[in-house]
Amino acid sequence: MDFETAEIDVDQGSDTQIRLSAVPFIFNPGERSLYVGADGPGGTVQDTAWLGLKTEPFNGWYSAQILSVTGNKGTDCMFEVKRNFHTPIQEGEWLWFPVKRQTIEPYRD
């Protein structure tokens, strides 16, 4: 399977920034499910989204806070690493981050 590759900028919440080049990645937005409350109204629940990077563990990977992805096929996204119910994990040659996709909008006056 061919994955899109990207330049990944990793912000760890300090002055140190890390850039990873030509990293295969995959984004899984998580599943949505419907629920109905006891008194009738319902809604949807969004499962945790995951961003997978096929790379060796790098210095400070576990403490990453923001991941900016600029893909070779036009992907341009920013993800906030969420640690509410999950933490980043290493699985084989993949690093998996529980994330929330952030939207970036141009400034308007």
Rank of each mutant, 00 (worst) to 15 (best):
E80P: 10
Y35F: 14
Q90H: 06
I104L: 14
D11Y: 11
V10K: 00
W96A: 06
R32L: 14
R108V: 12
F3R: 07
E7I: 05
A6M: 00
D9M: 10
S33I: 15
W50H: 08
P41E: 09
E31Q: 10
A49M: 02
Q46E: 09
K100Q: 13
G37V: 08
S33V: 14
Q12H: 12
R32Y: 10
D39A: 04
P24D: 07
L51Y: 08
Y62C: 15
G60M: 04
E105D: 07
G43I: 00
D76S: 04
F58I: 03
E91N: 15
R32S: 14
I104H: 10
E91K: 15
E4G: 03
Q12L: 14
I26R: 06
T5L: 05
G42E: 10
K54N: 06
F85M: 14
S63N: 12
T5D: 04
T55N: 01
F3C: 05
D15M: 04
K54Y: 06
D15Y: 03
G43H: 05
N28S: 14
I18P: 01
G42Q: 13
F97E: 04
Q46T: 08
N59G: 07
K82C: 11
F79I: 04
W94K: 02
R83G: 06
W94M: 03
L20K: 00
R19V: 04
Q12W: 05
T48W: 11
F3L: 11
T103N: 13
T44V: 11
Y107P: 02
D39N: 08
S14D: 13
E4M: 01
I66W: 14
T48G: 14
A49G: 04
P88C: 04
L67R: 02
V69D: 01
F85D: 15
E91S: 15
E80G: 14
T55D: 03
G42Y: 08
K54L: 08
R19Y: 02
L95V: 03
C77Y: 09
F58Y: 04
P41Y: 11
S68I: 09
N72T: 10
T16M: 12
A38G: 08
S68T: 09
P57Y: 00
G92N: 02
G71F: 01
P57V: 00
E7M: 06
W96V: 05
R19A: 01
D109C: 09
S33R: 11
F97H: 05
G42K: 11
P41N: 13
N59E: 11
P24Y: 07
D2L: 15
A64C: 00
S14N: 13
T5A: 06
E4F: 01
H86E: 15
Y62M: 15
R108T: 09
A6C: 01
